[in-house]
């Protein structure tokens, strides 16, 4: 029950709670990173095989599943890209609106 897979799902939900409970635009991006960490943990745990070794073909021992690990390198880089872009946009937003509170962005603007 208490293994990486289940904990990863819980970490994702913690990130989701952060996304709903904060109104600060920087904190939202941080919560997004928490959720991303949950996904990374999920994939890394999926690649884990009990009793196996790291995926280096130096001996004849059974190795871990390398595919989820390599997908995670892709995800980490995409995550970095999105986070950086989000922070840049949040900075511009702060300069435009004068506040970091996302719930105030809709005030005083009739559609």
């Amino acid at each position: 029950m208490l293994n990486g897979l289940n904990i990863a799902l819980l970490v994702m939900l913690v990130g989701l709670y952060g996304l709903t409970n904060n109104t600060n635009s920087i904190k939202l991006i941080m919560s997004l990173s928490v959720m991303g960490s949950g996904v990374i943990l999920l994939f890394v745990s999926i690649g884990y095989i009990p009793g196996a070794e790291a995926p280096l073909m130096t001996s004849e021992v059974m190795t871990m599943d390398p595919l989820p690990h390599s997908i995670m390198i892709t995800l980490i880089v995409i995550n970095l890209a999105t986070t950086a872009l989000g922070l840049a946009i949040a900075h511009r937003l702060y300069k435009s609106y004068g506040t970091l509170d996302v719930s105030k962005y809709f005030e005083g603007d009739d559609e």
């Binding site: 280096l56 130096t58 190795t63 390398p66 595919l67 690990h69 390599s70 892709t74 880089v77 995409i78």
Partner: peptide, 24 residues
């Protein structure tokens, strides 16, 4: 490569890495 993660990243699934480099 004897490093399986490396050979997946840059050989079997190099097209993924290509997309990822472009995303970055």
């Amino acid at each position: 490569s004897i490093n399986l993660v490396e050979s997946i990243l840059l050989n079997y699934r190099a097209y993924d890495t290509f997309g990822e480099v472009m995303v970055l």
